[in-house]
């Protein structure tokens, strides 16, 4: 599956457009990690736990979007957009959406 965030896939022609596909997930880290992040908040710097949490969630949301596109018989997704919203402190919702297409 070819995934891009441009409107077209360079060097390829889009033959069928299947419409919008999306994937989302809400995740939170366990309390221990939250505590560590709280400590790190005192001295500043990167919160590795949260960086990992968000990249894992994105992978999962991406998998869900790909599964939906595969169900429609698409072999590519164009114009992919990411969106993040914090549901509560420590939990984030990741939403990925794009247009499923068939390319030659």
């Amino acid at each position: 599956m070819i995934i891009t965030n441009t409107e077209t896939i360079p060097n390829k022609t889009i033959s069928i457009c299947h419409g919008v596909v999306s994937g989302s997930t809400v995740r939170a880290k366990h309390a221990g990690r939250d505590f560590m992040a709280g400590l790190k908040n005192l001295v500043g710097g990167e919160l590795v736990g949260y960086t990992e949490l968000l990249s894992e969630s994105r992978e999962q949301a991406m998998e869900r979007m790909k599964a939906q596109a595969a169900e429609l018989g698409a072999n590519g997704i164009v114009n992919v957009r990411f969106s993040t919203s914090s549901v509560s402190a420590g939990a984030s919702e990741i939403y990925i959406y794009g247009t499923a297409v068939t390319v030659e």
Partner: peptide
């Protein structure tokens, strides 16, 4: 030859 969707993320906090 081919294209690929790439991402990079980071969470940074401010100090006290």
């Amino acid at each position: 030859s081919h294209t690929e969707l790439v991402t990079g993320n980071v969470v940074i906090s401010v100090d006290y």
